[in-house]
């Protein structure tokens, strides 16, 4: 995925695409929170996953992008939609939220956002520029580093997931 053969307008195109998919991502996330019907929310989450995958692709992380679509948008969200359809969940009322949430949550969110924005602006001189495929990694290289340098974390994660699967089976098993 390296764009058109003569990639002269690289950085410019990259910015345009980044803003398009970033905007779609944020719009999807907001829609996810504001929708009343769970299936609308689930579909918005798929849009968020899809645009995140495209942002990964813009950085050149093609394998991560593909896995994002296959695993998150394709498998996990299908299960979400499946459960919503199976339970035939209806519309929900939007609550105004508890008083504690408003008293503590809103200032906390404002503080965190302010901190992130401040850090980004203050350190903007140190941050470099990016263009399409700056972090281009072949899937083969990713596999080699995953199974050589990061073998232990990889195996620990696998065991963790295995434990989670066994836990789910134990919880779901019917008592005889």
């Amino acid at each position: 995925m390296r764009g058109t053969p003569e990639n002269t307008e690289g950085p410019m195109l990259h910015q345009v695409l980044f803003f398009i998919f970033g905007a779609i991502c944020i719009a999807g996330a907001l829609n996810l929170l504001l929708q009343k019907h769970p299936i609308n929310s689930a579909l918005s989450l798929i849009v968020v996953m899809g645009s995140l995958a495209l942002l990964y692709l813009l950085l050149g992380a093609e394998f991560v992008a593909a896995v994002q679509v296959i695993v998150y948008a394709g498998a996990i969200m299908v299960l979400f939609v499946f459960v919503i359809m199976l339970l035939n969940a209806g519309e929900e009322d939007l609550t105004r939220g508890s008083r504690i949430a408003i008293l503590l949550g809103v200032p906390a969110v404002a503080a965190i956002t302010g901190l992130v924005v401040y850090t980004l602006i203050a350190r903007s001189g140190d941050l470099g520029r990016l263009s399409i495929g700056d972090y281009y990694v072949k899937t083969q290289e990713l596999g080699i580093s995953l199974f050589r340098e990061f073998l232990l974390p990889f195996e620990i994660t696998s065991v963790l997931i295995l434990i989670a699967i066994m836990g789910a089976v134990v919880l779901a098993r019917r008592e005889h």
Binding site: L43, A73, G74, A75, V78
Partner: peptide
């Protein structure tokens, strides 16, 4: 990926 999204 497209096949897995095709379920929707």
């Amino acid at each position: 990926g497209i096949t897995s999204v095709g379920v929707y």
